[in-house]
């Protein structure tokens, strides 16, 4: 059974329609990459999945006992965070807010969860550091740890490697792949089509043409070939 099904979704804002007739599903353990040009509506799709926005038409259906509030989310960075005085621990712990329920304060289990997710991503030594003073790669790990505090089943990542240097990007991709191997379903927006193809099990291509299928199917499809070629330039003969 699918964890998540999107049926005939139309996405857009007041007077613009971005995509129409979007149909796809995500099963447990899959790794879906969403690719497409800037402005294609990838972030909008993610917000719709998270119920931050309503679709213009169609529906998002959760199954297998998954709730939209039990998804870990790594948003595209917002401006506020750039000079926000917060320690790494405070940020990661805030990932437990959905476990608060009616409680006012975090309990021992929440704190333990925050610490274990920091260990999982290798940032436990940064616990007392100030979030804003860390490098882009470290910040993304922290936000990933926060997202992990909110879920054990599904992560939604909106361009997790944008602005990171190649080495750190590779580490980030490895980290995400390992999480996927541990059984966490991944939906990731990516600009980097080469890595998307390398790591994902499924691809959703948004744009004038919509493609949804397994990564192998994508590589054989016309959209896939064209997009892979366009984004490859001349640097592939090495």
């Amino acid at each position: 059974m699918a964890l998540l099904k999107c049926k005939d979704l139309t996405l857009g804002y007041e007077n613009i329609e971005l995509v129409k007739g979007l149909d796809f599903e995500v099963n447990k353990g899959e790794y879906l990459c969403i690719v497409g040009e800037n402005g294609a509506g990838k972030s909008t799709l993610m917000k719709t999945i998270l119920k931050l926005r309503k679709p213009l038409a169609g529906s998002v259906i959760y199954d297998d006992g998954l709730k939209s509030t039990e998804i870990g989310y790594l948003p595209q960075q917002t401006i506020v965070q750039k000079d926000f005085p917060a320690s790494v621990y405070e940020v990661v712990l805030s990932g437990c807010q959905s476990h608060l329920g009616r409680r006012l304060f975090y309990n021992a289990a929440d704190k333990e969860r925050a610490l274990s997710n920091m260990k999982r991503l290798g940032i436990e030594n940064l616990k007392k550091h100030c979030y804003r003073e860390l490098s882009g790669g470290q910040q993304q790990r922290i936000l990933l740890a926060r997202a992990l505090c909110a879920t054990e089943s599904m992560l939604l990542l909106d361009e997790p490697v944008s602005g990171l240097d190649p080495k750190v990007t590779l580490e980030m991709y490895d980290l995400i792949r390992n999480l996927n191997k541990e059984g966490i379903t991944i939906i990731m927006i990516s600009h980097d089509i080469q890595s998307a193809v390398r790591y994902s099990s499924h691809i959703l291509h948004m744009g004038s043409e919509i493609f949804y299928g397994t990564t192998e199917e994508y590589q054989r499809s016309d959209e896939g070939k064209k997009y892979l070629f366009d984004n490859n330039g001349g640097d592939h003969n090495a």
């Binding site: 998270l50 926000f84 990932g95």
Partner: peptide, 11 residues
Amino acid sequence: FDESFSKAVGT
């Protein structure tokens, strides 16, 4: 710190 994350997890 992050309104959209909070919203997404149901706060």
